[in-house]
Design a protein around this nucleic acid. Structure first.
Lengths: 183, 183
DNA sequence: GTCCGCATGTAAGGCGTTACATGATTAA
DNA sequence: TTAATCATGTAACGCCTTACATGCGGAC
């Protein structure tokens, strides 16, 4: 039972953007190239194939506007299955694997969770994130100790940058959760 | 004049590790899989091809230990050209592109700079990093404002996570630079 | 004498990158 | 009418991922 043929951050970003309203390939490229979301790639060689894959998987549907011209404009919109898939992906539990390897994708998930799943779910997401980070940081500290004992000064410092990053993300998550709760 | 055939973070990590002393492919895999450096991949399907590329580029040299067995052990060590290339890569100026797209590689560069280029250069590196981050953060704040005005609440918050990450890295860089200076 | 860890790889396949190709539209 | 911008793609290539294959060496 294979559901998601392509499960990359880029495909998540595209699904999220299309879910906010119909988008053309060029429109998506513009969004990616003019906002920090371009972090998940802005090149046509990535976006157009991704659109085709998502369409073949039945998650989005492309409608051709001007049939008579040689270069027809294509506008993609969400299918029911696509919305279901997006919701499932946004609501998935946060694993340690996500924390270690896919932090930026988690932030991307949060960015779309507000519109798609609502404020309450956004708050839950942030609390789960904070909790998972709290469980991971001690392990990083372990590695700092190990590297310091090995005399790897810069290596230990480099690991501390990672810790600083996670702690900052933790503080951010708590603050935002609080703000979203109070509003 | 093509010098670096492969310029990936993984190849930098391998060059750095080999520069600290001869390494076997398996030894590298162990290092990658047991330390957070594994962030730059720990799979054999990435490491062995990378070793072959680095050897073909003349940056490392593999010496076979036991010729008589069918599975000979191979130990890689640095060539002069490899050390030169590594030094050049570590000493390269930090660009905005690096800050935006390759922050983790910058941290990796710092981790090896201590052993390869020394403490003074490590401090310079951190100050350059701090300065470049300071120049980038205001641009991110711009995007936060834009997204907030568009009513994209979670999107604006998500961007703030990025800001928090960079600011934490900036504080880390200043602190470490200070500590390295005082010692 | 069998199982597990050491040790070195290969194969198939996927996604992304850079560079290139093509046509329509608008402003000077 | 020419240049820039809108708009949609393709081609070649490279690196990484997952899964698989193979053999040695010591412990039980």
């Amino acid at each position: 039972m294979k559901i998601d043929s392509s499960y990359t951050p880029l495909s998540l970003a595209i699904l999220g953007l299309v879910s906010l309203g119909p988008q053309s390939g060029y429109g998506l490229r513009k969004t990616f190239s003019t906002t920090p979301m371009g972090h998940f790639s802005a090149s046509p060689g990535a976006i157009y194939p991704a659109l085709r894959r998502l369409e073949q998987a039945g998650l989005i549907r492309g409608a051709i506007e001007k049939k008579n011209t040689l270069r027809p404009r294509k506008t993609y919109s969400m299918t029911e299955q696509g919305l279901k898939t997006l919701k499932r992906r946004l609501a998935a539990a946060i694993t340690r694997h996500d924390i270690v390897w896919r932090l930026e994708e988690l932030i991307l998930r949060f960015a779309f969770t507000g519109e798609i799943l609502g404020r309450t779910r956004s708050i839950d997401f942030l609390e789960e994130l904070s909790s998972q980070i709290a469980q991971y940081v001690p392990d990083l500290r372990e590695h700092v100790t190990i590297q310091r004992e090995l005399g790897n000064v810069n290596g230990a410092y480099a690991l501390e940058q990672g810790i600083a990053k996670y702690e900052a993300t933790d503080r951010w998550a708590r603050r935002v959760a609080k703000e979203l709760t109070e509003v």
